[in-house]
Design a protein around this nucleic acid. Structure first.
Length: 432
RNA sequence: GGAGAGAUGGCCGAGCUGGCUGAAGGCGCUCGCCUGCUAAGCGAGUGUGGGGGUUAUACCUCACCGAGGGUUCGAAUCCCUCUCUCUCCGCCA
């Protein structure tokens, strides 16, 4: 099968050590690429020797077969081949050891930022791209969604904690209905107007899938793992949906491929103790509609703009104000080459909060997952580019709707575009 | 959970008493010929990845017949483990 050399293209890395080193350093990463390079030289050396021996073995084995057919004694050659075979075995072992060393390094290298990504070290360096929508103008002090939600009887975090623990949501009545309405609204929008095909994937995936999209091997602590299985709860639909085509060779004429998937998402939120402890913002379980694209390399950046647009459309239709920022090199996720975040206005906290993250992974995930395409009339294959973005995180959308559409009497108006999904209802009032 | 059967190239399907089979045959596809158009017919080609080599081709070579190990001078073919698929029985949303 494949020899286990994947991820950042090893050839590219070893032939462009300086540039790669430099690109990684803009992300605040340093990597021992020198080691990588020397392991790779070692690998090639062993491989050459191994192949020569195997060649000799193949040739002589034929001779032995011919001699036996003639009834001649081949014992001398057989004896020689016994030695060759044991060398082959030894060399093969050291080859796979070397490959393993390379793999460990290469699997933990993040993607290289695209040249267009702004340089920066931390979130505060992320440039604002634009702001959209009009901020609501309240003539009273807006309440946070958790207070309103509990007052209205549509959210209940205390009981959720009783059932499971901290950071789990429990919706009642119109709250549950609102969550479901948003899921349907988003899926309908993307499938009927934006050209995505709806998929409903498994919510549990194996290690290989997690590795292909980049969650593993480095971020195991962020995941929920099933005891006794090498299976994980998905942290995002990106994982199962991108892996739909793992190991496949797609035809150019079938590209691009667009998928939209609703799934719950599960995240351990390790290291975020004390952060966003209230409300729907940071939960171990939340719903999300995810958009995933497979494209040719030359169209992936146009498709990223389109993807961002598709996600923005949801907020526009819901009439919720938001801003779009571009992640700087230092804030980029492990697998991403470029990312835009959409941040939604949360009036009670007086801040914009991330509600969608749209990224182009270029060939990074495709290389890990071996997802290729063949150009019409051309020999050979190329790696596709993969992209994905939230369209949108549903729980945070509920929070945004509640906060932005709240009224002085503690009720919440329902955005017009959503009303058909709420049975024509215009307002959420006390729900017992 | 119990009992069987299977996993081969884009597809179907041989091979599985080990050696010239990267893999017959068919279908499909591509190019060429033929033809008033279509159909039929004829000829050639048609997997992926790695290494070497070349300015680039050519070319040489290694690996891959679900995955991983083993036996052997040599394995698609024999042995072991795992995964998946199918059939029957049981159980269950």
């Amino acid at each position: 099968m494949n020899t286990g050399i994947v991820m950042l293209d090893i050839k590219y890395v070893t032939q462009n050590l300086q540039e790669v080193q430099k690109a990684l350093s803009t992300r605040g990463k340093t990597a021992d690429l020198e080691d990588l390079n020397s392991f790779n030289e070692q690998r090639k050396k062993i491989l050459l020797e191994l192949e020569n021996l195997r060649h000799r073995r193949n040739v002589v084995s034929q001779e032995i077969a011919a001699m036996k057919k003639e009834g001649e004694d081949a014992e001398g050659l057989v004896a020689e081949m016994r030695k060759v075979s044991s060398s082959v075995k030894n060399l093969a072992n050291s080859l796979s050891e070397t490959e393993e060393k390379i793999n460990i390094i290469v699997m933990s290298l993040p993607n290289l930022p695209n040249a267009s990504v702004p340089l920066g070290e931390e979130p505060s360096d992320n440039p604002l791209r634009y702001t959209k929508g009009r901020l609501p103008d309240f003539d009273f002090e807006p309440l946070p969604h958790w207070t309103l939600g509990e007052q209205l009887g549509i959210l209940d975090f205390n009981r959720a904690a009783k059932i499971t623990g901290a950071r789990f949501p429990l919706y009642f009545g119109l709250g549950a209905r609102l969550e479901r309405a948003l899921i349907n609204f988003m899926l309908d929008m993307h499938t009927e107007h934006h050209g995505y095909k709806e998929v409903l994937p498994p919510f549990i995936v194996n290690r290989g899938s997690m590795t292909n999209t980049g969650q593993l091997p480095k971020f195991e602590e962020d995941l929920f793992k099933l005891q006794g299985w090498d299976y994980y709860l998905i942290p995002t639909a990106e994982v199962p949906v991108t892996n739909i085509h793992q190991g496949e060779i797609l035809e150019e004429e079938n590209l691009p491929v667009f998928y939209a998937a609703y799934t719950p998402c599960f995240r351990s939120e390790a290291g975020s103790y004390g952060k966003d402890t209230k409300g729907l913002i940071r939960q171990h379980q939340f719903n999300k509609v995810e958009l995933v694209k497979f494209t040719t390399p030359e169209t992936s950046y146009d498709e990223l703009e389109n993807l961002l647009n598709n996600a923005e459309t949801i907020l526009k239709r819901l009439e919720i104000p938001y801003q779009v920022i571009e992640l700087c090199t230092g804030d980029l996720g492990f697998s991403a080459a470029k990312t835009y975040d959409i941040e939604v206005w949360m009036p009670a906290q007086n801040v914009y909060r991330e509600i969608s993250s749209c990224s182009n992974f270029e060939a990074f995930q495709a290389r890990r997952g071996n997802i290729r395409f063949r150009r019409k009339g051309k020999k050979g294959t190329e790696l596709v580019h993969t992209l994905n973005g939230s369209g949108l995180a549903v729980g945070r959308t509920v929070a945004a709707v509640i906060e932005n559409f709240q009224k002085a009497d503690g009720s919440v108006a329902i955005p017009e575009a959503l009303q058909p999904y709420m049975g024509g209802m215009k307002r959420i009032e006390l729900c017992m």
